[in-house]
Each structure stands twice: as structure tokens, then as C-alpha cells.
Design a protein around this nucleic acid. Structure first.
Lengths: 300, 300
DNA sequence: TACTGTGATACTTGGGCGTTATCAGTGGTC
DNA sequence: GACCACTGATAACGCCCAAGTATCACAGTA
């Protein structure tokens, strides 16, 4: 017995007439007689009373009619959900990210994504770049915004470059370097530097040290805090010159940002796990590519 | 697409192997390949990744696997419920009854019925005999214990005789008639009689008057209350002789019951509506017939 | 490199489903 | 009350689809 039988029974039970039901189903009437008989013999129960020129439902038939409706409803719900999932309209997006460089667009991006795919459950996890990579490799995240790490990434992880960000010096407006349009690295030889802790971003930290070495000096690291905000606070307090990517400069920060020369950059990438590449994630990536083309990720 | 497809997909998705699934389903493997392809093309979504020698579920496939389990569960639940309903193990019994004559067995009978068919919902409605017939005719009850009514019953109602009950005189123990083994009707010619109101039981009321007429007198009706209990209260108060069926005599009633002679009787019947004759009702009737044969309805 | 085991494909075959033709029973009508 | 209209059941037939067999392409393995 399969769904065809139920469909046929349902038609007869609703029309209370074999011939009308056959007409509705666009088949000949004998097929209906047979189908209903087959259900009845399989269930060992009579479903329809066909006595005295009037078809009526037995109690068992009434129950089956109700159950039939439920089954078809579930069936259609199942087909809908599968289709939606395949289309990326339904599912789960577990997104990891690092705070400061994504701040300019993440909110807007997620708002648009939720607008387009309201049935996708979005989970957000803010972590350090290394922790994000680790979670991706373990499959705890389906995608993430992060920095590349120097070590070779775990296999199965793919990346999409979003932006190359310049490093610059963060100084108080009163600082002698504040008025320059750019700063050669060697001018920093005598300055106490404030750089993010190495464990919070191996790439940027090592890049800065390499640039100093290339300029012929060993930098004096005054502080290496864990949070980018703390770097800025030290600078505000006059503790030294901060070396930070330009994206940390929101308008409300009361510091000057002066590009360094020669420029060193750090990429911002989207990373995802090939094994967790669900349609919901694919649609998320599509949206990012679209915004990148239209230059909507960063204004201006 | 029908259930066969789902069954096949489910097997493959659970085994994560076409050949093992084919073995489990006892069919050849190519049939499975085709079935899954058919589902995929109908849904427009790929459900299984068959790359690199390893079958794995796509997100859509995972969703379908879960939905499939739900559908089969509902399917089996439906089949179970239909079978149970046909067997009378599930359903509804709306039972009407009149209180006093059913009191000796109704509780025990229903307890046994509920024990045998715990999934049948039993609704009880205590009414007067006439009201019970009316509700049966309207289909508001599926069966009832009541008295026959003189008018020809509504068509479609069928009855089963349970008992013929004698009428007798209810008198206080001190009453002159109390010591007799039986009472000829004519001895009641001078007594004030207390009889149930005619509207509460046309059959018994008219039967009593007819018996008096046959004995050659017109009865003096002192009171005709609506409740059988009120009849007994009048008798206790010394207001006259009550004429009641013997079943009203529970041991705790402080009155004497003396059979009348020649005996007139009133039947107690089970009535049901042919159009509402569900399996649950049929099983109820079966139980009654069984108890009747084993003389369990009335003790001794 | 040969082997084993996978799923996909091509082709054949048998059973199941729908068809047409017909029957039996019921209810309405003149 | 005989006929008619219409119901659902039954029988016989034919076609199509699903399952079977045989085989292939491919990948992982010894």
C-alpha cells in the first residue's frame, strides 16, 4: 500500500461517491473500487459502507480520512522543507568573526541576509582569529571572518579574500608625528610601540616586527594588550605609538591614523569548511560576493 | 513519487551505502540508484553526495531523512488507529441511561468495559426514559439503557431485552399489607397510591392504571412525583402505597416490597441507533450479552 | 598493476494499474 | 409493477513502469 491508495481513498471519502471521485482524479471508476478494496483488505477493516446506493464512512473510515489529511500535510511540509534547504532558504549558519575589522559591515550584512533568508537560523561567535580557525577546522563553525594565520591551514578550509588593510600609526593629535601624511618605519625606532599581543594575531604581530627589522631596528614594545581597544587607550594615555590596521578607526576615536611607509597590509578573509558547505552558507557567500562587487561592504 | 521512494531513500541514507541498503531491502542495487535519482529530480535537490567512494547526506538529504522518519511514524500511527477503531478498541461510547434500574450493574459493567477497551472514550448521560429515546433518535447517544415507550420507536433504533421487572407495592414495615407474600390489585382500591409521574415513564404509569382497571377499580393517585426517590419518601412518610419496580429496592431502603398479583412487568432494554453502530458500541453490546449469559448483570 | 567493491547505465521482463465492457442491485418514475 | 437510470463490483485486456541481469567506470588497496 502506498500514497496512491490513500489519495484515492481520500477522494472517495470526501466525495462520498466512487464515480465522482474517479472523475475528480481523472481515472476510471473500477480502479477506485480496486484501490479501496486493497486498503480494506490490508487493514482488515471496512472503511466505506456501499450499501443501499449511498456511500458512507465507517468509524474506521472516518479515522483514516482524518489521518490521511495529516499525512499529506506532513508530506507536503517535508517536500517544502527539503526544497527550501536545498535552496539555502532554510537551515543554519554558524558564523564566527573577529570584532573590529568586521564592525563596519557585519550588522548591515546580517540584516540583509536575514531579510532574504528568514528561515535560516544564524548563530554568531566572536573570537580571536586563531580560535576562529580552530573552530572552523573542528566543524563548530560553518563560516567565519578572520585573519589568515601563518601556519598552513587545516585541509578542507577554503578562503575568500575580502580586503587588504594597511597598517598605520595611531597617535594623539598633539603628537609630533600626527601631522605627517605618512610615516617611514625608521621614525618609529625610538618610539615605544603598542601592538596587539602576538597570540591575538600572529600574522599582524609578526608582520610589524618584520617591517621594523627591514627598516633596520628592533622595536621597543611598550605594551602588547589582548584587545585592540586597549591599544587605543594606551595611545590616548600617551604611552606610545599604536600600530593598528586602519579599520579600527571609527570616527569617534579621538586619535590620528597615519599610514606607514612602505605599507604593510593584513588581509581580511571569509573562511569556510568544505565539509560544512551547506546551501545556507553558499547563499551567505553569494551575498558577500555581491556586496563586494557593489562595494557595499565598506562605504566610500 | 510515493512511499516506496521514501522507503528506499531512507534505507540508503541510514546505511550510507547503496549496496547494503539494497541488501536490506532485498532488491537489486540499480533500483535504488534510480529511485534516489527520481526523488532528486522531482525535488530539484541533490540529497546524497556519492563522490569519492563515500556516500554522504547533503543538508537537504539530512532534512529529508528526518522528515521521512516523521512521515513513517505518522503512517504507522494511522494504520494502528484505523485497525483499533475497526476492532472497537478505540473510539467513543456515548451512553444514556436511567438511574435506578441500572444501578445494580452499571458501575461494574463500565469498569469492565474500560478495562477491556481503555482507549474508548465513554460519555455518560443520565436522563428520563423518554429523553433517552429522543437523544438516541437524534444521534446524540450511541446506546442507552432505558424503558420501552408505548409510541412506536423512531426508525433505525434497535433494542435488546435485558430483564422483565415485576412491579410491587412499597409499604412501611408497619403497614397492614407489609406482612403479605403478595398483594392482589383489588386490595389497593381504597389505598392512596403513589406512582411515578406519567411523563417520566409512560409505559409503567399506564401499565399500573390498566392493572387497576382490570381489577375493577379506578386508582386514587395521592402523588405522582418526578423522581423514584420521592415516591419512596412519600411512602416512608405514610402518605400511601408506592407502586414501583422491584429494582428500586436497595438493601438500605427501610420499606417492604410486596409483589403484586397478577404480576405486571416492565422491561429494561438496551437501545442503539443503527446509524451510530460503531465498533465501540458493538463491543459494548457484546460485553452485555456475555454478562447476561453468565448472569453477571444482576447478582443471584 | 591487478583486485575488490562502489554506484551508474543499458537493456530486458513481468506484474501491476488503468482501461473498456459488463453485471447486479437500488431507487425513482410513469 | 415494469421499466429506467445510475450506482459500485467484476472480468478481461493491454501497456507502462519498476525491478532484474549484465556490464561499465572509477576509486581505493594490496
Amino acid at each position: 500500500m502506498d500514497l496512491r491508495h490513500l489519495r484515492y481513498f481520500q477522494a472517495v471519502a470526501e466525495e462520498l461517491s466512487y464515480s465522482r471521485a474517479a472523475e475528480r482524479l481523472r481515472i476510471a471508476q473500477p480502479a477506485l473500487s480496486r484501490a479501496v478494496q486493497e486498503i480494506e483488505s490490508e487493514l482488515g477493516a471496512s472503511l466505506l459502507d456501499r450499501n443501499r446506493r449511498r456511500v458512507s464512512l465507517t468509524p474506521a473510515g472516518q479515522v483514516l480520512l482524518r489521518e490521511t489529511a495529516i499525512i499529506f500535510e506532513r508530506w507536503e511540509e517535508a517536500m517544502r522543507r527539503v526544497r527550501r534547504t536545498a535552496a539555502g532558504e532554510e537551515g543554519e549558519l554558524r558564523l564566527g568573526y573577529i570584532g573590529p575589522p568586521t564592525q563596519p559591515f557585519l550588522g548591515r550584512l546580517l540584516a540583509e541576509y536575514r531579510r532574504r533568508y528568514p528561515r535560516v537560523a544564524v548563530h554568531l561567535e566572536e573570537r580571536t582569529p586563531e580560535r576562529v580557525w580552530e573552530m572552523l577546522a573542528k566543524g563548530r563553525l560553518s563560516a567565519a571572518f578572520t585573519r589568515p594565520v601563518s601556519a598552513t591551514p587545516a585541509s578542507g578550509l577554503r578562503t575568500l579574500l575580502l580586503r587588504q588593510e594597511r597598517f598605520g600609526a595611531a597617535v594623539p593629535p598633539s603628537h609630533p608625528l600626527a601631522s605627517r601624511r605618512s610615516i617611514p618605519w625608521k621614525l618609529l625606532a625610538r618610539e615605544p610601540l603598542i601592538v596587539l599581543a602576538r597570540r591575538e594575531g600572529v600574522g599582524s604581530h609578526d608582520g610589524i616586527l618584520a617591517a621594523c627589522r627591514a627598516a633596520g631596528f628592533a622595536p621597543r614594545l611598550a605594551y602588547t594588550p589582548s584587545l585592540i581597544g586597549t591599544v587605543l587607550s594606551y595611545v590616548e594615555a600617551g604611552a606610545g605609538v599604536g600600530i593598528v590596521p586602519e579599520s579600527v578607526f571609527a570616527p569617534e576615536v579621538p586619535l590620528r591614523f597615519v599610514p606607514l611607509h612602505p605599507a604593510i597590509t593584513i588581509p581580511l578573509v571569509l573562511v569556510w569548511n568544505e565539509n560544512e558547505d551547506t546551501p545556507a552558507v553558499q547563499r551567505f557567500r553569494d551575498l558577500i560576493v555581491e556586496w563586494q562587487k557593489e562595494r557595499k561592504l565598506w562605504k566610500g
